[in-house]
Every structure is written in C-alpha cells, then in structure tokens.
Write a protein that binds this DNA or RNA. Structure first.
Lengths: 140, 140
DNA sequence: GTTTATGCAAATTCTTTGCAATACT
DNA sequence: AGTATTGCAAAGAATTTGCATAAAC
C-alpha cells in the first residue's frame, strides 16, 4: 500500500515525505472526506504542525491527488479519488453532509446533473452538497 | 417598499429596526447573493457595527427571510427569496459562482435535481453551486 | 416599564506568511 | 550539494461572546 502511495507522489512530481504519505494513506483508507481539523486530530497526524498539514493538503489538491468540497458548515473537506472510476475526476460526485455529526460522505452512485451555463459564462466545476441527517444520527 | 419590508419583519415576529430594514431592502433590490463583506461595504450599511450585521443576517436567515449559500471561496452569501415562486423555498435553486470576480448569481430557471438519500438518511436541503467564469470576466 | 437589539471591546478560531532548520533526491 | 519541505513564531482575517447602552414594543 505504501508503495502504491509513493508511486502516486512520484507520478505527481512531488517528493516523498512521511507527512504526505500518511495523509494520503489516511484519506485513502477513509470512505469520506475529512476536514483539516478531523485530519490533524488523528493520532498518526497530530505530531505534524498544523501549518504543514495546511500546506500538504493544498499541495496534494493542486496536483490532483485530492479534491476538496465545502460542507454546509463552511469547512473544507478533502478526499482522494478512489470512489470514482475516472482518474482525474476532480471529485465529480454528490456529497452528503450530516448536520448532526458534521460528517460528510460521498454519494458516488449518483452523478451530477447537466447544467446550462448562464449566458456567455463558462462552467468549470459543480458542487452538489446534500444537507440532512444521516442514518446514524436519526436513531438518537 | 419600506412598508412591504416592515410587513415581512412583522410577520416573522421580529422588531422593526433600521438595520434590518436596510439590509432586507438592499438584498431585495439586489439580484444576487451578497457576502457579509459585500454588505458591510455598502454606504447604506457601513455605519452599522460588523457584529450587528452578523447578528442581523443570522436572525433574518433563521426566520426564513433570507437564505444563505456558500461560494466556492468558503464565504457565505445571503439573498432574499424573491427569485422563487414559493414563499418558503429555502433558496431552492442553483447558484453560479464566478471565480474571477468572486460574485455569485442565481440561476432560478433551472431546478435542483431529485436525489436519492443515502440509506436511512433524511435530506433537508440541497446546495448546487456551479463554479466558473462569468460572461463579464471572460471578456477580459 | 420590560424586553430585545445594538455597539464596543476583547476573545477565539482559522488560515497565511516569513524564515531558519531539516529532509529529500 | 542543491532544492523542496517542514516547524515555529507571528501576523492577519473572520467570527463569536459578554456586557452596558439604546431602541422597540
């Protein structure tokens, strides 16, 4: 698995550092997007400086190894691309945000709708965040 | 017009204050959602304290006179409901966000798609923000 | 007169910047 | 050895809280 991740960094032309590996590993293992705060409060990550985490997330996102989505709480969350088939998808799927536990999850089965751009405008990407209460939280 | 706005505040069970009236008036006149910063930099608003503006926006949004949407810059924007037919729509339409000028606009003609909730979850609302470059900015 | 909203000061939180020390190739 | 990344300190921005004053009912 680590070999795999190093490969990703290599292909992206980035140096292989412990921090980047650990974060990629974490997000790969996770099945939902994590915020900066969620990431830094993991035992495996907490030894790194917050600034470093900001920079790693920024870097990985820029080269396309991560994408970021905004929760309806205004906080960015990051996740890997493993839930989509295409390689450079840019996070092209719907996300669900639970307002009870503030956790976000991916809804990869449903695709984003086609949108007609405003007159003369160019569409770059779309973010559809569904806001609600997840199954877990509904039971309490 | 002011009479109209006072009516809205009244119906919502809120006291009629100059600040609330002015902000509602501004957003009613505007044809796009405005951020806290955009709002407070208006001449008619700048005399109020930033904290007051935060609280007014919060209050108006809570009683349903405004809704808020997040731009892909992570900043909340507020707008009235005048662009939708239904009274308590909760901002149920698509928004366009231009990453050049950072301005948001409404796309009221197109409606939000139907989404299947994750198993056992309850959907409360949906936010679809289309990210791109507006007609104006494309020409420069 | 009582209750609610506002203004001000200060605290808190989140994010960014600069630079020296360290790690990677 | 040379370059990119990290850690630390500090700056900056956005937002929230507490409380006294002022405005609305």
């Amino acid at each position: 698995m680590i070999g795999n991740i190093n490969q990703l960094l290599d292909n992206a032309g980035l140096r292989k550092t412990k921090g980047r590996e650990t974060i990629l590993q974490l997000l790969h293992t996770q099945n939902r997007p994590l915020s900066h705060q969620e990431i830094i409060s993991r035992k495996s990550i907490s030894k790194y400086d917050r600034v470093t985490i900001y920079r790693i997330l920024e870097t990985l996102q820029k080269v396309g190894l991560l994408h970021k989505i905004l929760g309806s709480d205004g906080v960015w969350r990051f996740c890997t691309h493993k839930y989509t088939k295409r390689k450079k998808c840019g996070g092209n799927h719907i996300h669900f945000f639970c307002s009870e536990c503030n956790q976000m999850s991916c809804m990869p089965e449903q695709s984003l709708p086609w949108i007609n751009p405003p007159k003369g405008a160019k569409i770059i990407s779309k973010q559809l965040v569904v806001h609600g209460v997840c199954a877990n939280c509904l039971n309490f």
